[in-house]
Amino acid sequence: MIMLLLQFSIAQDRYALETSQIIEVLPLVHFRPCPGAPDYIAGQFNYRGTVIPAIDLCRLMHGRPCEAKMSTRIIVTSYSDTASGQHLLGLVAESMTDTIVVADKDLKPSELDLDQSRYLGKIACDKRGMIQCIRVEYLLPADVSKRLFSAGKAD
């Protein structure tokens, strides 16, 4: 089966996300900071009238924020929390300007299984090197997810 993936960069490495998980791609906007939250939480922003949190993937993986360039964009994705169900989540990454088409069989599972980085999924190889899929459902640890999304339920 053929799949369409949105490709982007974190630092020098290429990553991708299945388009089926993407709601929309947005240009970079100003984030309202969330004091007390982990530093990879970039902040909150208004998406068509809904305030949703955004994760800076560069910060999460490399400890430095994404550069403020035109190609640095926000992916609006749907995140399913085990406790509170479906939520909208923003992911910030660099060089988000192209899509790629990958056959299902070309995706090889990563042999590593680390608790800290369970969000890193299968790997595909092409002419420019390796590209690794992101598993959105494992991006946030349970406690962070609870704190981010329990408030909305309470209201």
């Binding site: 369409l4 949105l6 388009t19 089926s20 993407i22 929309e24 791609v25 947005l26 240009p27 035109m70 190609s71 964009r73 988000m96 300007t97 192209d98 899509t99």
Partner: peptide
């Protein structure tokens, strides 16, 4: 360059939408 950026972004979203549309979205993709 701003215009080009906007166009790129637009085309990305269009691709995503076309994918979601399945068979009907192929041409648009």
């Amino acid at each position: 360059s701003k215009v080009a950026d906007q166009t790129n972004l637009l085309s990305l979203n269009a691709s995503i939408e076309a994918e979601k549309a399945g068979e009907q979205g192929l041409g648009f993709s």
